[in-house]
Structure formats: C-alpha cells, structure tokens
C-alpha cells in the first residue's frame, strides 16, 4: 500500500504539483458524478457498440466479431426508410419548434418586465413536466375522428366530413412532438437574448437602422448560439422517442425508435437493436455537427 501511495504521489507531483488546494478539492468533488457517468453512461455505450458487432443466435449471443448487423441495416430497405423518416420528422419538428419558439423567447426577453420574466418561463415549463404519456394521448383526443378539432369545425360548418389526415400519420407525430419539445426550444434562446447588450440595439437605431433591420443585423446574429442550442436540444432527443409515433403515427408513422424498441423487447435481437441505435445516433450526431459547422461559417462570414 505504502509503495503504491508513494509511486502515486511521485507521479502526481510530476503532473499535479502546480495545482492549488482549491483545484484538488474540485477534482475530488467532481470525481463522484464523473465516476457515476463513466460507469452508467460511457461503459454502457461502449457495451452497445461492442454488441452491435455480435449476432443473436436464437437464445444466445454469438460473440464472433462481424459487421452482419450493419450489412442487414444497409441492405433491407425498411431500416433506411424508417431512418430517413425519423430524420425528416425530427428535422421538421425542430424547424417548427424553433420558429414558433423564437418570437416567444424574444417577447419574454425584450417586452416583459424583469419582475415578470420568471413567471412567464415558469408557465412555459410547467406543461413540459406533467404526464408525458397522457399529454400525448390527449392529442389523440384533439386530432381524432370525433376529436376536438373535427367536432369544432363540423359545428362551425367549415367542413362537412371529419378530417382524417391529422391522425395516425406523420403529421400527427410532428404536431405532438412539436408541442412536447416547445419549452426546450424557448429556454436556450431566451438565455442568449438576455445576455445581449441593449446599448448595441440603441446604437444601431441611432445610426439609422430601422427596428426590423436592427433585429436582422444585430439581434438575430447575436442570438444564433441560442438558436443552435435550441436546435440541438430538440433535434437529438426527438429521434429517441417511440411513444408519440406508437400512439399517433398509425402504420405509416412508425419511426426508427419503434424499430429499436421492437428489436430489443419483442424480437429479442439485442445486437441488431444495438446496431440500429448506433446508426441512428451517428446520423443525428453527424447532422448536428454539420449544422454547428454551418452556423460557425455563417457567423464568421459576418464579422
């Protein structure tokens, strides 16, 4: 033990001798959550990467290294179809959510009295934290054949027959997801808008820009980091939702997450499920990184 400690302390001295006591305490404190995330996030993620190169052999898992799962995903059209549909749904949901959320974040940051801002944010976040399953189900009640929208429109005489294109298809999935992720988009944009120096806007208007061009040329570029944050925080998690497509999507609205869930829990093919999860994850990450890169270029080209 003593030897170990001594050799450790020598190694430490080489590397860590210039750390202050405060820094060392910080490292020790951060060690606990870091170890937890390492054991329950990094390790399991490593495990599914490994698993995706194995195969399911009826009841047992064959641990010879193979890319068969990936070949199957590449060759069967169903997986590509689901993946493309998932990415499209996530993309549209992100676009809709962020476009709808931006004016609200702008309103709260620029037009609401500082004392009332917390209240507005609180009101916006409340629905996000209540009974996710039941909220999704209620969209069925709103969009359904005898639902709120159809009976309302029939009553008003706008339509003569109930609309059917709003439930059990991709549209319904998009509406429901856009609703579920709305608060997620508002918060990052709001935080960045709050940090914008208001004197810059005054300066712009003093120099003769109109309110609208001030927004386009000053506020919007300065708020881009928040928009990027909002895009990522909506786009990435939506790909992993299987509840909404299951309840709202009908046969034609199933997404890649439903397939992953089916592989794991019904078909008992964990390796193929793992490979699907990784493919989905890689696609989402690649698109996100590309988006971040585009945004950097856009901001760099302006300055």
């Amino acid at each position: 033990m003593i030897f170990v400690r001594k050799s450790l302390s020598i190694a430490d001295m080489g590397k860590l001798s210039n750390l202050t006591g405060d820094q060392i305490r910080g490292i020790k404190l951060l060690g606990l959550p870091f170890t937890y995330a390492l054991l329950l996030l990094a390790l399991p993620l490593g495990a599914i990467v490994l698993f995706s190169f194995w195969t399911q052999d009826f009841m047992t898992v064959d641990t010879t290294f193979t890319t068969r799962n990936y070949q199957e995903i590449w060759n069967s059209p169903i997986y590509g179809l689901l993946l493309r549909r998932s990415l499209m749904v996530s993309g549209i949901v992100t676009l809709v959510t962020v476009l709808l959320a931006y004016p609200v974040a702008y309103f709260i940051s620029f037009h609401v009295k500082p004392s009332k801002k917390s209240l507005w944010l609180f009101l916006i976040t409340i629905p996000f934290w209540t009974s996710y399953l039941i909220r999704v189900f209620l969209w069925k009640v709103i969009l359904g054949y005898n639902g709120v929208i159809n009976s309302g429109l029939l009553e008003l005489g706008v339509i003569t027959e109930p609309l059917t294109f709003i439930l059990y298809n991709v549209n319904a999935v998009i509406i429901t997801l856009a609703h579920a992720f709305a608060p997620f988009a508002i918060l990052p944009i709001f935080v960045v808008l709050e940090k914008i120096d208001r004197s810059l806007l005054e300066a712009s208007q003093d120099l003769g820009e109109s309110k609208f061009s001030t927004f386009l040329r000053v506020t919007l570029p300065l708020s881009m980091p928040g928009v990027v944050g909002a895009v990522l925080i909506v786009f990435i998690p939506t790909i992993g939702d299987y509840v909404t497509p299951e309840l709202m999507g009908g046969a034609g609205g199933k997404l890649i997450a439903n397939m992953i869930q089916t592989q794991f829990l019904q078909l008992n093919n964990a390796p193929l499920g793992a490979a699907l999860a990784i493919v989905a994850m890689v696609c989402v990450t690649a698109i996100s990184l590309f988006f971040v890169f585009l945004n950097r270029k856009y901001l760099a080209s302006r300055s």
Binding site: L41, P44, A257
Partner: peptide, 16 residues
C-alpha cells in the same frame, strides 16, 4: 444525458 436520446440510454443500460 440532457441531450442524449433517452432510448440510447435505455438500451445501453439494458444491454449492460
């Protein structure tokens, strides 16, 4: 985990 799809966390923990 804030930005990771929940299904990824779910399946990776299930596997391990």
């Amino acid at each position: 985990p804030l930005v990771l799809p929940e299904i990824i966390i779910a399946v990776s923990l299930l596997v391990i």
